[in-house]
Nucleic acid binder design. Structure first.
Length: 747
DNA sequence: AGCACGCCGACT
DNA sequence: GTCGGCGTGCTC
């Protein structure tokens, strides 16, 4: 319809006195917007802010979003908007305000922030997607074929039989029958036994299951959330593993749904499993839209459209689901709120939990942050009265009491692949009783270092990262865990030529082979990123565990959370000492969280659980804190420590980091950037530039400057004044640089 | 970021 | 004689 103008000149007035101008955010890494004339031949929406427009940009065209309208522009050479793609804002009001706020708070270019909040299709200018999803229905001849028994047993018959009860979405066929379901439906369609039909959003999963009776603390928590009457209030749902947090979420969501509202549930990256999804779908009488990385673009756009339609539904997703449209929100839930996967680690470095708090406030709805091991940031907000804490201190009825946790001093113990006799005997006992055990070691591979015993000079190191390479014996490779580089294992020392290469340290693979030798008649199952590479192998391993046969599982973080294995009664932590000496001030917090989560795997059934933690430093104060009062104790001590040392959450930080092949370019960048900030507020401390925690990765040198302030306002005032000029530096073009507000990894 | 323009090496 | 390396500059 609109034949686009060349864009060389603004086809402005057409004789009229004024030209309407719009400021447009475009998806480029520049901290500014672009002004365009609005041509008279295009009718302007009543409220153009938030509408997508197609505009000439550089040599081509780009899709942008109108930020505001303006009377005049400081720019001379205005081009004209070529087309408007929406007749009203594509973002609901609270989402729009949250996104504008985020761009300012994280000091990230607004165009990239807005682009991050749209499914790729909408980003590239597609019309807002249709609500219906592709489905298939049985035809009359299909029914006849079914009645005649014209099909042999197989997926085709199964699919056809399922469709006899009514049409089904393709996605449900895939869920029920796997890839064979889709293939079968294509074959059936060719024979005219089924036909394509667009379906309303899923409604067939509405369930009538009701939840279990609540114990007293659960009842109190539900009542506290209901009592705020759908207004903004933040809650911390603080409850040990097995105390029934999910049940509280479900009740609160049910109440939002009953009021005809939407609920947003954020979960950590690993937590969005089919089982978790099933639990929500079984209980909630409204569509549950799952947003995860496995969705196709079509599915993603459809889910977006469905959320945007505003009907009562549950949006369940990981970090980026915080950008879902929710025009009719009634509740936000952030499960495992302490989880680091809520922080985006590159590009637009937002924290989904923090954005969720902002969004709930803007929406004026309650938000529930749940965790057995809350972050110190959240605990500080509780302390300051900004978040109300709801404590669940009882394990729900069917579950056993808290596990018995013991520290094992391994200094004098002879260990096999890191496992001392006490732990080995406990493993043998558990297997003899027909139970399962988990051996936790947060290190993949066979051994973290391969070194020469003869010359004591050589050890395998990644040439691009200056970091020891991990020996993977099964793969017969040295692997750099930082950049992923792989090379074959040398047979002889490259330096002295002797054949005395020695694997040093313990990885999961080494534990696996040692235990396989020790318990040859039992299943030894290793679960980490290497063994879980193929989904089918992981599924097979997990299925074995779920059947409950005696077994030893060996795993990394992957195993620490989410799973509920009733036959698992013993957890062995091989070595946690490294974290006791980490320079990272968050290490004790993380260790406390990890150990508490791992310990929570033990004894979830009717049998008591045991946790054995091996250490060479039983006298370290961390252990007394954790053993006597659990994570709550660790957290209280750490909060004191943070306050005394002026660290977050009592101080505010931002990290300017940069990387470049050429170290001189890197140094020049920091010199120029810091020179620009010289006259700025002296109350904001600047530390660095210093080499980054990973000083060299994949051939790039990396450095950083930490900015720190006692107040958020001072830090942000400085950043807002300073960063725009950093963007303009010529030195900035020779490096990759970024700003990280509220960084999680400084060390 | 994407994209063009612009001067210096190994190839048909 | 050209294809192409990535340094530099720009995008309303």
């Amino acid at each position: 319809m609109q034949s686009t103008t060349s864009g060389k000149r603004a086809d402005t007035n057409d004789g009229l006195p004024t030209t309407r101008i719009v400021r447009v955010a475009l998806p480029v890494p520049l901290p500014k917007s672009f002004d365009y004339a609005w041509p008279n031949r295009l009718s302007m929406p009543a409220e153009p802010v938030g509408c997508r427009v197609r505009v000439p940009f550089g040599r081509g065209e780009a899709i942008g979003v109108v930020l505001e309208t303006a009377g005049e522009s400081p720019h001379e050479k205005l081009k004209s908007v070529a087309a408007v793609l929406d007749d009203a804002s594509i973002f609901d009001p609270a989402l729009w305000r949250m996104l504008r706020w985020s761009a300012a708070y994280y000091h990230h270019p607004i165009g990239e922030v807005l682009a991050a909040a749209l499914p790729a299709r909408l980003r590239t200018g597609a019309a807002t997607p249709a609500l219906h999803e592709p489905g298939v229905a049985i035809t009359a001849s299909g029914r006849a074929a079914l009645a005649d028994g014209a099909l042999r047993k197989g997926p085709g018959l199964a699919v056809l039989a399922a469709l006899a009860d009514g049409p089904l979405p393709l996605s449900v066929l895939c869920e029920r029958f796997g890839p064979a379901g889709r293939a079968a439906s294509t074959r059936l369609r060719r024979r005219n036994w089924v036909d394509a039909c667009p379906l309303e959003p899923r409604t067939e999963l509405r369930s009538t299951l009701t939840g279990p009776a609540l114990n007293a603390p659960q009842q109190a928590a539900v009542e506290a959330i209901d009592a705020v009457r759908a207004r903004y209030q933040a809650f911390l749902l603080d409850g040990v593993t097995g105390s029934g947090k999910t049940e509280i979420y479900l009740r609160a969501i049910e109440h939002a749904i009953e009021r005809g509202r939407q609920a947003l549930v954020l979960v950590p990256e690993i937590a969005l499993t089919p089982q978790a999804l099933k639990r929500y779908r079984e209980r909630l009488r409204a569509p549950v839209l799952a947003l995860h990385s496995g969705l196709s673009e079509g599915e993603r756009a459809r889910a977006w459209a469905q959320a945007r339609a505003g009907d009562a539904c549950i949006v369940l997703g990981t970090r980026s689901a915080i950008f879902s449209p929710l025009p009719n929100a009634g509740l936000i839930v952030v499960d495992e709120e302490h989880d680091d996967s809520y922080k985006q680690a590159d590009g637009f470095r937002y924290h989904a939990r923090d954005l969720a708090l902002v969004r709930a406030k803007l929406l004026d709805v309650p938000i529930v942050l749940g965790s057995a091991t809350p972050s110190l940031e959240t605990l500080a907000l509780v302390e300051g009265g900004r978040i109300e804490r709801l404590v669940l201190n009882q394990r729900a009825a069917a579950l056993a009491r808290a596990p018995d946790v013991r520290l094992i001093d391994v200094r004098e113990q002879r260990r096999i692949a890191g496992i001392g006799p006490t732990a080995m005997a406990a493993l043998a006992d558990a297997l003899a009783r027909g139970e399962q055990a988990l051996v936790f070691r947060n290190r993949r591979g066979y051994a973290p270092v391969l070194a020469c015993q003869t010359c004591e000079q050589w050890h395998g190191e990644c040439s691009r990262c200056d970091h020891p390479m991990t020996l993977h014996r099964q793969a017969a490779q040295l692997v750099c865990h930082r950049c992923g580089a792989r090379r074959p294992v040398p047979r002889k020392c490259p330096r002295c030529g002797s054949e005395t290469l020695d694997a040093r340290g313990i990885g999961t693979e080494r534990i696996e082979s040692a235990l396989a030798g020790h318990f040859p008649e039992h299943a030894i199952i290793r679960i980490d990123r290497d063994s879980a590479r193929s989904a089918s192998r992981l599924d097979a391993a997990l299925a074995h565990v779920e059947r409950g046969a005696p077994a030893i599982l060996i795993g990394t973080q992957l195993l620490a959370k989410g799973h509920d294995w009733p036959r698992l009664t013993l957890v062995v932590v091989v070595d946690a000492d490294g974290a006791l000496h980490s320079p990272d001030f968050r290490a004790p917090e993380r260790l406390g969280q990890l150990l508490t989560q791992v310990a929570g795997r033990a004894g979830r059934g009717d049998r008591p659980g045991r946790v054995l933690v091996q250490t060479r430093e039983p006298e370290h104060p961390f252990w007394r804190q954790w053993l006597t009062g659990g994570y709550a104790n660790v957290a209280a001590a750490e909060l004191d420590e943070r306050r005394n040392s002026a660290l977050p959450p009592y101080r505010y930080q931002a990290l300017l980091s940069a990387e470049a092949r050429n170290p001189q370019a890197l140094a020049d960048f920091f010199t120029a950037a810091l020179a620009l900030a010289e006259t700025a507020d002296a109350s904001v401390a600047r530390m660095g530039p210093v080499p980054a925690p990973i000083p060299r990765r994949a051939g790039h040198h990396r450095m950083q400057v930490l900015l720190e302030s006692a107040t958020r306002a001072a830090l942000h005032t400085l950043l807002a004044a300073w960063l725009p000029s950093v963007f303009d530096l010529r030195e900035a073009r020779r490096v990759r640089w970024s700003i990280d507000v509220d960084p999680r990894d400084l060390y």
